[in-house]
Simulated scan of single mutants.
Amino acid sequence: MRWIRCAAVATLALTITACTTSPTGRQQLTLMSDAQLNQMGQEAFAQYQQDLPPAGQAQQRYAQCVAEAIVAVLPEQERNQDWQIRVFEAEQANAFALPGGYMGVNTGLLDIAENQDQLASVIGHEIGHVLARHANERVSTQTSTQLALSVLSSAAGLEGPGGEQLMGALGLGAQYGILLPFSRRHESEADVIGLRLMADAGFDPRASVALWENMSAQGGANPPEWMSTHPSHGQRMQGLQAEMDNALARYEQARQAGRQPNCPRP
């Protein structure tokens, strides 16, 4: 059908003009302006700081020390971003990163991360999300998926209860077949980038696996992996182990170069 050919041509043109490469060499679709997303990240970070109580100064200095050691080994362009990290008083074992270099860590995660190396695996992971422009890719994927479903609905005349039911099924298929796998891919990629960064900064990369062992020991029900935005704990540990030889070599090079962070845990 003609509309299918037109949609295919438009999609191809969009993909070609918005194609970038992640730090691991993966092809990405990035439609958004980095400046626009960075502004949104700044606004969201300000809102977080209004809504969540700050942790104590000792915890803040601890996270800042680890973050600065990792930022120091970034390429110059990325290193010169306005990186900011805040520790929030919240029991959930969680951390986040926003476009523009804004990061948050909950005290609940500091309770699980037993030392500076384990915390470095978390902060390296969050910096990895920013370096790989995952927020841009996520928004771009959602936008292009919704556009494709809208074009399909209009062109195929899917109206009425039957059409709504079919479009609902297609939307569900897009969620589990495209959007969630992309999110899991982002998490795995950030794990790899973070592992390299922490090793380059002189943090022991083996601590990344120990952190996830701690997370697994916390228990808690998880949805099936195909319904989750994150890989399973076991899959994450396997992915980290697969990269460990390279990370250990980078770690030894960093130590020989004098990069030996000292960030005492409060």
Rank of each mutant, 00 (worst) to 15 (best):
Q84H: 15
T141G: 01
E126L: 11
W83A: 15
C65A: 09
C65T: 11
Q118H: 07
F96Q: 04
Q142C: 00
E78D: 14
I123D: 10
V105H: 10
A90Q: 15
D82H: 11
R79N: 08
R86N: 09
V139C: 00
V66C: 13
E78W: 03
A120F: 04
G100K: 00
A69E: 14
Q116P: 08
Y102D: 06
R133G: 04
D82V: 12
R86K: 15
E114K: 15
P75S: 04
N80E: 14
F88G: 02
Q142R: 00
A93N: 07
V66Y: 08
N106G: 13
A113V: 01
L147Q: 03
S121H: 01
R79W: 08
D111T: 11
N136P: 01
A120H: 09
E78F: 02
A113S: 03
R79G: 15
R79D: 09
P75F: 02
L119D: 10
G101S: 10
Q142L: 03
E89C: 06
P99F: 00
E137Y: 10
L98Q: 02
G128F: 08
N115A: 05
I127P: 12
H129Y: 03
L119M: 11
A113K: 02
L98R: 01
A120V: 07
S140N: 10
I70K: 13
A97E: 08
A95C: 10
A93G: 13
G104H: 12
E91W: 07
G104M: 09
L110K: 04
E89G: 03
Q84P: 08
G101F: 03
L110F: 09
L74T: 00
E114N: 10
T141D: 01
D111F: 06
